[in-house]
Design a protein around this nucleic acid. Structure first.
Length: 258
DNA sequence: GCGACAG
DNA sequence: ATCTTGTCGC
């Protein structure tokens, strides 16, 4: 839906317009709690040490129901980070409380995702991950607080945002990034906002892939660690934890539909 | 004023 | 997120 439609709908709905104001303040407040440290993109990452720090990696995705727009299916998986062996796999049918508004995805999805992680902790603690991949952005966001930040901060768990398309922030645009990544022949490219702050990275996750994915820090992890973890878990364009979570949540949505 | 906007 | 159609490679 174009943003103008949303704005038009807002004017007819005091309710949503008030919510958006509230959410904006909430994001600005939560942003202060992110404990962001300056990124050193020239340092090297020791993969073995990375696997020791994050032996298990979780993936979260959510598929909306085909007919009821307040119903959705959460997929949650946990893999061994190094071997990519699946350790845990579960779906949940959930009721969503608010509509999707660009820039506020977390308020729609994060509560359901957080619930799925808490459920995993109760039913299978030995599969509890040290890091989560969230389908969406981290600090690569208009107010520096995407859904991956919301999930991480709430659970006090390291998170990484992985988006399939670029959210327009700080004048960043997809074409310019695509050109740049081709020119330089690199596997990944830092995304710099105004004042040269590092917001995330565009990553060609596979040799055959043409379109980058967009990786950003959610909570309590370095961008370089995030990039290396995500790259390691990519058999295809989308990292395995998210790809499998997406698959099982889709399966749940078509199963419950019948 | 116009456009642009994760899932 | 959803829809569609076509093409390539196994």
């Amino acid at each position: 839906m174009p943003w103008s439609w949303v704005q038009k709908a807002d004017n007819n709905s005091e309710w949503l317009s008030a919510k958006i104001k509230e959410w904006t303040i909430q994001q600005e407040t939560w942003k202060q709690q992110l404990l962001l440290e300056p990124e050193d993109l020239s340092s090297t990452v020791d993969m073995e040490r990375l696997f020791e720090t994050f032996p298990m990696i979780g993936g979260l995705d959510i598929t909306p129901d085909k007919e009821q727009d307040d119903i959705a299916y959460v997929g949650i998986v946990v893999l061994s980070s190094k071997s990519l062996q699946v350790k845990y796999c579960q779906t949940h049918c959930v009721k969503l409380q608010v509509p999707y508004v660009p820039g506020f995805l977390g308020f729609r999805e994060a509560p359901a995702l957080i619930n799925a992680v808490e459920c995993l902790k109760r039913e299978k603690v030995d599969c509890f991950p040290q890091v989560l991949l969230v389908d969406g952005n981290g600090i690569l966001h208009p107010r520096g607080f995407g859904s991956a930040c919301q999930v991480g901060l709430s659970l006090n768990l390291p998170t990484i945002g992985v988006a399939k398309s670029l959210l327009s922030v700080d004048g960043l645009n997809t074409l310019q990034i695509k050109e740049q990544i081709c020119e330089e022949g690199k596997r990944w490219l830092p995304l710099l906002g105004s004042s040269n702050r590092v917001l995330g990275a565009a990553l060609l996750s596979n040799e055959c892939v043409k379109r980058p994915i967009f990786v950003s820090v959610g909570y309590r992890i370095k961008l370089l660690e995030a990039i290396n973890l995500v790259f390691h878990t990519c058999r295809y364009r989308i990292p395995e934890p998210i790809r499998i979570a997406d698959k099982i949540s889709r399966q749940a949505s078509s199963r419950d539909f019948c």
